[in-house]
Write a protein that binds this DNA or RNA. Structure first.
Lengths: 151, 151
DNA sequence: ATTCTTGCAAACTGTTTGCAAGCTC
DNA sequence: GAGCTTGCAAACAGTTTGCAAGAAT
């Protein structure tokens, strides 16, 4: 996700919050701005609390949780549970999104986009007679050197 | 998942546990048998604890958590976090598995199987140069009456 | 001025762990 | 008999909530 996209999200989020009658208070603003800066991929509430605190920004534990719940309710962030901990990431208004691959060896998380996967999921919704409002795909695996790199 | 499949899993699990040098103790056995009976789709640890307790079977809180961790480590169950709570279900040795659709209106969970989806995920692993060891797909949506049922 | 929001601290829930007693191999 | 397992209770981590003080409109 590029800077422009995150900047777009920030404006979008600010507008949506304001239209919902919510105030641009210090804590809430700090959380939203932090997400616009670093929320491209799976931040936990605790990570956000620590990051805000490190910067000296407003945003207590309670405020961060409350804000994330608000943002999620307004569809401004996606939420994904990982190892029993909720993680959040920016939800682009365009619907553009990515999925995640967890490297079983390192625990590292790689994000990817795949049009074919999206197509199949769309078809699946039709087959199951459901209007899809969202979906998550998590792959787990280990890197494999490609043939040309074999010794 | 049919009775035969669950029975197969029970035998498989028993063998794997025994080969791992683990004893057929009361608590562990009760958890495994409960899973073989009701573990077709997403049971939480707490649900298992309550179910065992209701039956008067062995299996304290601690034992259930410890057993589930053991089973997961041996690849005998799949684990999926849902609303911040870990849920487990039987992992068929054949690799046969299903995915989940959450009805946004009722919260109900429907499981489904889709060959096309599996195919695309397999390809995705190749494209990302990863040997896939597992994957989860969660769809969210609301039921839609099909055209012929419209008034 | 009114109403929303914050931060703190206490309360909760799900999960993990130390330890002495009990059970399995 | 040796060593793995159990159950209990205490400890933990993440998350939620009540409330009085403070800030935004």
């Amino acid at each position: 996700m590029d800077d422009a996209a995150r900047e777009r999200w920030l404006e979008h989020a600010t507008r949506v919050l304001s239209r919902a009658g919510l105030r641009a208070s210090a804590g809430r603003t700090a959380v939203v701005e932090l997400l616009a800066r670093d929320g491209g991929c799976l931040l936990s509430a605790q990570e956000i609390v620590r990051a805000l605190h490190a910067r000296g920004d407003a945003g207590s534990n309670a405020t961060v949780y409350r804000t994330l719940e608000t943002l999620h309710g307004l569809g401004l962030v996606h939420r994904l549970d990982r190892d029993g901990v909720a993680h959040y990431e920016i939800a682009q208004p365009s619907g553009e999104h990515h999925h995640h691959l967890v490297d079983e060896d390192t625990g590292e998380i790689v994000s990817f986009v795949d049009a074919e996967l999206e197509r199949v999921i769309g078809e699946l919704g039709r087959r199951l007679r459901v209007e899809l409002t969202g979906h998550d795909v998590i792959l787990r695996g280990r890197r494999v050197e490609n043939a040309s790199q074999h010794r």
